[in-house]
């Protein structure tokens, strides 16, 4: 489309006076800025990796698999995370919990193997969102390296060790502060679920401990 001459505005270059045409005011202005930086030193360069960045706690880095209050893997192998994962990078093989073992008596199902392909992962956090027992969480750890692709396939042990490493760090709080499994397995003490919908104020559930909160 040709430009309409009416739309063109011609701008004249402002003419310089004597001092400006010597360029000295601009040179001194520049030197003043330099002088200010010398006097008031604020470095903006980050000395990575000697200095680690201070990331917010909702930063989405490498996953961890949390442990429950008995130190077992908290994951109940429901595969919700694998279902939610848009990158299809979670592979879980489930197994029924050993019923004769008192350590596992309260559990039905747990992951025999749990592998996340950290190279395929897009760190979207959908898995964390989907997990009904707050087992899978994304940590602050972002500087992930490995010598082979295989090394970047994080298995259950590795993901649990990430939990052990990060659980006490201020940046990676165990978000629910609960070792409890909740509804997926913990049958002895089930709480009333708060209504997911609005209820009348005189409804009994409105007074439930957890009213308004979906555990």
């Amino acid at each position: 489309m040709p430009i309409n001459p009416k739309d063109i505005e011609w701008v004249e270059e402002p003419s310089m006076n004597f001092w400006e045409s010597t360029y000295l005011p601009a040179v001194f202005d520049g030197l003043r800025t330099t002088g200010q930086h010398v006097a008031d030193f604020h470095p903006v360069t980050e000395f990575y990796p000697e200095q680690k960045p201070d990331l917010p706690s909702h930063y989405r880095g490498v996953h961890r698999l949390n442990r429950d209050d008995k130190g077992r893997v908290k994951c109940v192998a429901c595969m919700m995370c694998a279902t939610a994962c848009p990158a299809h990078c979670i592979d879980i093989v489930a197994q029924d919990a050993p019923k004769d073992d008192p350590h596992w008596a309260d559990r039905d199902k747990f992951p025999k193997s749990f592998v996340i392909d950290e190279l395929k992962c897009i760190y979207c956090g959908m898995c964390e969102e989907a997990c009904p027992v707050d087992s899978i969480e994304l940590t602050n750890i972002f500087d992930l390296t490995g010598m082979s692709r295989q090394e970047m396939m994080f298995d259950k042990e590795k993901l649990l060790s990430v939990f052990d490493q990060t659980k006490d760090s201020a940046h990676n709080p165990v978000r629910t502060h609960k070792g409890k499994l909740g509804h997926a397995s913990d049958f002895t003490n089930l709480h009333t679920l708060g209504p997911a919908t609005t209820v009348r104020a005189d409804d009994r559930s409105a007074k439930a401990n957890s009213a308004g909160v979906i555990e």
């Binding site: 109940v76 192998a77 429901c78 919700m80 039905d108 199902k109 009904p132 027992v133 509804h183 997926a184 397995s185 049958f187 089930l190 009333t192 679920l193 708060g194 209504p195 997911a196 919908t197 209820v199 409804d203 009994r204 559930s205 439930a208």
Partner: peptide, 29 residues
């Protein structure tokens, strides 16, 4: 128990489907 995450029927369960369609969404127990 509402342990749908570990329940093999989840996804083809009469309780899930009807709770969604006809149920009240929370328990008063």
């Amino acid at each position: 128990p509402l342990d749908c995450p570990v329940c093999d029927q989840a996804g083809e369960c009469g309780l899930q489907d009807y709770s969604y369609k006809y149920g009240r969404g929370y328990s008063r127990l």
